[in-house]
Design a protein around this nucleic acid. Sequence first.
DNA 1: ATGAAAGCGCTAACAA
DNA 2: TTGTTAGCGCTTTCAT
Lengths: 339, 339
Amino acid sequence: MQDIADRVGISTKSVSRVLNGEPGTSARTTERVLAVARELGFRRNDLARSLARGDRTGTVGLVLRHSSTRFYENLIRGVDEVADAHGALVLTAGSHSEDRERSTLLALSSRRVDGMLIVPVGRDQTYLRAEQAIGMPLVFVDRPPSGVAADAVLADDRGGGLLATRHLLKHGHRRIGVVGASTSVHTVNERIAGYDAAIAEAGLTGDPRLVQLDVEGSAAARAAVLRLLAEPSPPTALFLLNSVCTIGALRALDDAGLAGQVALVGFDDFDTADLLTPAVTVVAHDIVEMGRRAAARLFARIGGEDGAPALDVLPTTLIPRGSGELVRARQVARARRSR
Amino acid sequence: MQDIADRVGISTKSVSRVLNGEPGTSARTTERVLAVARELGFRRNDLARSLARGDRTGTVGLVLRHSSTRFYENLIRGVDEVADAHGALVLTAGSHSEDRERSTLLALSSRRVDGMLIVPVGRDQTYLRAEQAIGMPLVFVDRPPSGVAADAVLADDRGGGLLATRHLLKHGHRRIGVVGASTSVHTVNERIAGYDAAIAEAGLTGDPRLVQLDVEGSAAARAAVLRLLAEPSPPTALFLLNSVCTIGALRALDDAGLAGQVALVGFDDFDTADLLTPAVTVVAHDIVEMGRRAAARLFARIGGEDGAPALDVLPTTLIPRGSGELVRARQVARARRSR
DNA sequence: ATGAAAGCGCTAACAA
DNA sequence: TTGTTAGCGCTTTCAT
């Protein structure tokens, strides 16, 4: 701005006024400032601006682990929608590990974003207490905070687990295999809790050998399902705790020549679920809405709302498409026939 | 820092030294500063720091349109990898429209990122000339710049189109339908150019009715393919210009009861391509590598490298999986039989 | 309508 | 080892 002020022969304050659309500048000054600014390719330094104003930077951080899952696309869409309405810029930064999550969050905090949305990867966010103490608003998405008290917007994962498992039980299945990621992730625990509850509800006893956890990636899921199928008394149905596991499981069934012969329900919807044979039954929830609500919470906090941490839980739905409706009795009949 | 300095009873400069790990502080001072800093939950203001140092902010911007495609996950992975090595933070910001692309880029520029990676959505980036003039390094990814001269890392889209089309021709197809997004996107044009070249090479004359463009989204792609199939002389093979179109096309074939009866090659690989029946043949390229190279270019520029804009083009490969190897002669034979 | 002075939180350069 | 001074680019407050 100094540059422009010098060339036009006025004070920096006047330049500032023009460039920020503040009133109190003559048409002539305004015009000349704009002309010179354009000529110089001037771009206001928002670092200095934020520093001087001491208030908002107009940016919020969104920290998550990128993946090609629908989850992230939809979440970001929801968040962007609300942020747009608030004129804020969403800066997404990756957290492919616990360490990275931490360093990313601290970096964003140092950069003075107005608030942060977090899909935590690590098991503990105690280190964020310091940020909260400074007054940095924090909202957790999809997984609750641990070590800090903060707003959270989650899905009813337990309810989803219940839905999926009951659905399979209703179709006559008694041995239902489960494959999922690490139990250090809240959603995994909840989904299993729902599964366990449904099993107990049906008067059955859970068999720990049917539950394969700490399975990361579709290749590992494929292997896990092949292991399950090799058991002396293999499951007749599968419940996959996320879409990556679902895809791995489908590969395993293909490998074993059992495609369409083992009932299957997956958690989280995915792009080609309806195209596969049979089409894949899933438990899903409205992720765009989750993003919207989380962002709304965050902007409320940024706006000065205070009060106890809020917890918002979104419902899950079962979308039957075929793979989950395979009836146990028919499987048996078919097996007899092929003998 | 002033706070800490006051409490410890030293100058801010000493605090700064301790907090930045600069040499020249006694063990005792160091210790006390750190203790007070922790107690106060101090977090350095990087806005002020960057402003004072006048150099790097240690952040680079990545501007793209989020989607659940593999493309973005892989691109971000490659970029992150290289950025990590440079100790930089990658801030991803969305550009769901031309306007948003522009405002996002300008906002990042105002926030003084050290450089920007751009997967352009808009047709024209002339407005970025001003940023370049200020010395903001820019690298375009997947699509070349228009209106500015800047480094670009692209895929050999034309070569990919050639590969795909030749492959289908080789299997006896003469009427090959094409469905793709808007021709305002460079990749679409190039892929079609490859298609046209292969058609001409085979001594055939292209039929414009076989080419459906400006198809955005899988629902639109489904409709476009249904239109093609309803033609008096429908295509016996399809070339889909991106994975969203591919998925839409698969739905259309399902609808028409023609799954597995029309040959199909898609551009870009996707998660369940191997699981579908038949598995989907695609033309793909190494996107993680694209991200790596783009980031490497950017950091080279940030590091002061100058010279003419560089163009880096990555090769594409055909991955045969079944859907693209459907032989025309067999289709004919089957059709006769069913009559 | 315009400007001067002070300061946002930090660091560079130079003393002490 | 430590402190002082000046200033990064901007905005605020208060004059003019």
